[in-house]
Design a protein around this nucleic acid. Structure first.
Length: 291
DNA sequence: GACCAGGGTAACT
DNA sequence: AGTTACCATGGT
């Protein structure tokens, strides 16, 4: 990895194991828009980023060295050695070879905790395009505007304070349906300090999961997604219907409980479970495994 | 433990 | 165009 500034852009070349399309389209992130082939805009932590990946380099437009170092470097998980992770996963189970090789550029993004929590509460019972639509609507209505150089406005995901004054009624108008009271509960618990990123990070993964599940509307799966994408606990294995199908197809000849699958995966992949899950999810989903 | 509601779009016929 | 599938969670 070689990083330098050119005009107002940050350029990264000799970057391995990174594909912007795979990173964004693998189901972990909802607040981005595709502009073209390998061309995206992302809004995270109150900042806007336009990004383009050419065959030999990644371009982050209008980004200072400070912003890159202070935000995007960590967000894209650029300092984690994915070649090493992949080789360790394949040592645990060579049958993941196809999944890992088909999507070799996946990264687990380090996203904002609060946005991740609310986004994955919204995600239940919904498909990715709809989740994205709702996250955009909520941002537009309740979040800060970011004014771009061409005058266009985009919107940051609202802060805890901004969402804490939004009624269930107003949330329902964003099409969240029966999840409105769940979102309210999560916002209130974060606003009061009952739930916080700092507290959760000081706990074991098991304690943090249990704590998250005290929020109404947060069950095992949503909690695991928040742990993995919003808190950086990579030793967790979210199981939704897709993962259930994929795992049953790969490892079992008959249907299994999600609980059983999760326990099996944790035993097999251990601290690498979160990474393994992401390779499997994207691969299995695109290939319609087990359908 | 099994079953169903709830919401609105995506993805199928 | 109409129908079915999607989806996790909580409540029964």
């Amino acid at each position: 990895m070689n990083i330098y500034s050119e005009n107002n852009n940050i350029i990264i070349d000799e970057l391995n194991d990174f594909d912007i399309e795979e990173v964004l389209e693998c189901g972990q992130c909802f607040h981005f828009t595709k502009l073209g082939d390998k061309r995206y805009e992302i809004i995270s932590f109150g900042k806007y980023l336009r990004i383009f990946q050419e065959p030999d380099k990644l371009i982050l437009y209008n980004t200072t060295k400070e912003e890159f170092e202070g935000l995007w470097r960590r967000y894209f998980d650029l300092d984690t050695d994915y070649a090493h992770i992949k080789s360790r996963i394949l040592n645990l189970d060579i049958r993941l070879k196809e999944a890992v090789y088909e999507k070799p550029g996946i990264r687990i993004l380090k996203q904002d905790f609060f946005e991740t929590l609310i986004s994955f509460i919204i995600s239940q019972n919904k498909q990715i395009p709809h989740i994205k639509q709702i996250v955009h609507t909520i941002s537009e209505r309740f979040g800060d505007a970011i004014i771009l150089e061409d005058g266009r406005r985009v919107y940051a995901f609202p802060t805890v304070e901004q969402l804490s004054v939004v009624t269930e009624e107003k949330l329902r108008e964003c099409k969240v349906g029966f999840r409105a009271p769940y979102i309210k509960c999560a916002v209130d618990m974060v606003a009061s300090g009952e739930i916080s990123k700092e507290k959760l990070l000081s706990m074991s993964v098991k304690e943090a999961r249990e704590k998250l599940m005290t929020i109404k509307g947060v069950g095992e799966k949503v909690a695991n997604c928040v742990l993995l994408f919003g808190l950086g606990f990579t030793d967790t294995f979210p199981v939704d219907v897709w993962m259930k199908r994929i795992m049953e197809y790969m490892y079992f000849d008959e249907p299994q409980d999600k609980k059983t699958i999760e326990a099996f995966a944790m035993g097999k992949y251990g601290e690498l479970a979160g990474y393994a899950q992401q390779y499997l999810f994207f691969y299995g989903r695109e290939n319609g495994l087990g359908k």
